[in-house]
C-alpha cells in the first residue's frame, strides 16, 4: 500500500525531525501524526506505514500511538469538528444543555457527522477552561462561556 503524501508534508516532517537527536527520530511521532492528520484529515493505514518509514521504526510503533491518543482519528470527521467539554465544571455550567442545542441546530447526534459532511459533534475531556464554561472547540479554536445564543451565532458563522 503506498501513501498519497501531500506536497509539503515531507518537508514539514523533516523540519520536525530536527527537533530531536538523530538517533531518537521516533520521538517525533506525535508531532508527525499531527501534521499528517492536519493535511490528510485522518491517519490511514498507508500513512501509518509512511510515518514509520520516516521515523525508522515499525508500523506498530506508530499505530499504537494512533490508537492510544484520543486526538488522532482513523476516519475523517466533518469539516467542522465541534468538541464539547464533558468534564465536571463545564457540566455544572450547562454543557448538557449546550450539547442539546448544538445537536438540534446542526441536526445530528453525538459522535455523528451531518450527511453533508459539514459538522461532527463529540464530547471531549477537560479542556482547561473550567472558569469560563461551558467551553468547546471548533477544530483548533477555543470558545468559552458558550451560551445558547453564542452557540447559534457560532454555527451561523461557519460556512
Amino acid at each position: 500500500m503506498s501513501a498519497q503524501v501531500p506536497p509539503h508534508l515531507d518537508a514539514e516532517v523533516n523540519a520536525l525531525l530536527a527537533h530531536y537527536p538523530p538517533e531518537q527520530k521516533r520521538s517525533a511521532v506525535l508531532m508527525v501524526l499531527h501534521a499528517v492528520q492536519e493535511q490528510c484529515g485522518c491517519v490511514s493505514d498507508a500513512m501509518v506505514e509512511w510515518v514509520a518509514a520516516k521515523l525508522g521504526c515499525q508500523p506498530i510503533h506508530v499505530y499504537e500511538c494512533v490508537t492510544f491518543y484520543p486526538m488522532f482519528r482513523r476516519k475523517r470527521v466533518g469539516k467542522y469538528h465541534i468538541k464539547i467539554c464533558r468534564t465536571l465544571s463545564c457540566e455544572l455550567a450547562g454543557s448538557h444543555k449546550l450539547s442539546e442545542t448544538l445537536q438540534k441546530t446542526v441536526g445530528t447526534g453525538m459522535d455523528q457527522t451531518t450527511p453533508d459532511g459539514k459538522f461532527t459533534i463529540s464530547w471531549v475531556e477537560c479542556l482547561a477552561a473550567c472558569g469560563t464554561g461551558p467551553c468547546l472547540m471548533i477544530n483548533d479554536d477555543f470558545h468559552e462561556k458558550v451560551t445558547k445564543e453564542k452557540a447559534e451565532q457560532l454555527l451561523a458563522n461557519l460556512k
Binding site: Q24, V29, E64
Partner: peptide, 26 residues
C-alpha cells in the same frame, strides 16, 4: 522545542510524559 501531546491526561504524570515525548504510549 515545543512538543505537542495528543489528548491523553496521563501525559501530565512526569514519567508518562517522558515516554510520550519518546514517541510511545504514555
Amino acid at each position: 522545542f515545543v512538543h505537542r501531546g495528543a489528548g491523553a491526561y496521563i501525559c501530565g504524570e512526569e514519567t508518562g510524559l517522558i515516554e510520550s515525548l519518546e514517541g510511545k504510549r504514555a
